[in-house]
């Protein structure tokens, strides 16, 4: 087990595999299928200050080697997450969880993070400044270095927990955004969120998604994600959490070679609910095949 362990911002993870926000709910559905304590941790469903229903249906579309989603940050709001989801999670998950937070103003990000800061179960705050599916905030904070820095500063001021800023790939220079977050005090960077995409129904001649555009995820985005993780890892000194189309143990190793300290797995969980469990199970054999004694030794090995 120790061969797989990594240290993410002061907290030891049994392995670097982390189900990504929005693909794992608050853990409940998966806890019915397998013991989710086998995970490094998981990043819970993007949480906002107030409850959100999200976007109209349809929210999901098939894509080549992937999918589009435009869920639009549906969540019960931070207070119910704290009063209902976290106590429920405690009964099935004994590790620190990564709290994923979204917002529509700098103040809102800070307020939501301040409330989650008080929760012992929360190990890290992953601040999503990259949701492509809401029109009144979200990604706009992640496409401008100055705005990204403002959110980072505001969140850092209200918490002592490690703050990981989750970046959007829908930018021309992701390294500049990452550097701005680091400069503003971020403890880590995670990337990539989904890539903006579109599908049109030939039958109706209209976009498939009610939101028109959606975020592309799945194996289709893996090389793009890997490239961006590599660029960001080169540009910053703080730890990077890599994600985007990861669906195998080999992908995890590749992400770590590109500079990721830990690796999130997203869309794969939706196609195969056992994906993360299988990836963790496959890691030792893949490490043996490529002569890797300890995963932590290969972080950034290709940089």
């Amino acid at each position: 087990m120790d061969r797989l362990s990594v240290n993410l911002l002061g907290i030891e993870l049994d392995n670097p595999v982390i189900p990504a926000s929005g693909t794992f709910g608050y853990g409940r559905e998966f806890a019915e299928l397998y013991d989710i304590n086998c995970l490094g941790t998981f990043s819970f469903k993007g949480t906002t200050l107030r409850p959100r229903l999200g976007n109209p249906l349809p929210r999901i579309a098939e894509a080549p080697a992937g999918m589009l989603n435009a869920v639009g940050l549906q969540n019960p709001g931070v207070d119910r997450v704290i009063s209902e989801e976290l106590p429920r999670l405690k009964t099935v998950f004994r590790k620190p969880v990564m709290a994923n937070v979204s917002g529509f103003s700098v103040e809102e990000y800070a307020e939501t993070c301040a409330r989650l800061d008080a929760c012992d179960q929360v190990g890290w705050l992953e601040v999503n400044i990259s949701c492509p599916n809401v029109h009144d905030g979200g990604m706009s904070f992640g496409t401008d270095p100055a705005m990204a820095a403002r959110v980072t500063k505001a969140v850092k001021a209200v918490t002592t927990k490690p703050v990981i800023m989750k970046l959007s790939p829908n930018v021309t220079d992701i390294a500049a955004i990452a550097a701005a977050c680091q400069e503003a005090g971020a403890d880590g960077i995670s990337l990539i969120n989904t890539l903006m995409g579109l599908r049109i129904s030939l039958k109706s001649r209209r976009p498939v998604l009610a939101n028109v555009t959606g975020g592309l995820s799945g194996p289709a985005v893996f090389p793009v994600a890997l490239r961006m993780v590599y660029q960001v890892a080169k540009a910053v000194k703080i730890p990077v959490v890599g994600m985007g189309g990861v669906s195998s143990a080999e992908d995890v190793v590749e992400m770590m070679l590109a500079g990721a300290t830990a690796v999130e797995v997203g869309a794969a969980n939706l196609a195969d609910p056992f994906a993360c469990m299988k990836i963790i199970g496959d890691l030792p054999a893949v490490m043996d095949r490529y002569g890797i004694d300890n995963l932590r030794d290969i972080i950034g090995g290709a940089l």
């Binding site: 929005g22 693909t23 559905e29 999200g54 249906l57 929210r59 999901i60 989603n69 969980n269 939706l270």
Partner: peptide, 17 residues
Amino acid sequence: EARMGCGFGACMGCTCE
């Protein structure tokens, strides 16, 4: 009926009010 993502309640892809 709905277009679903996961089909088991994780992704919120088919929520209605």
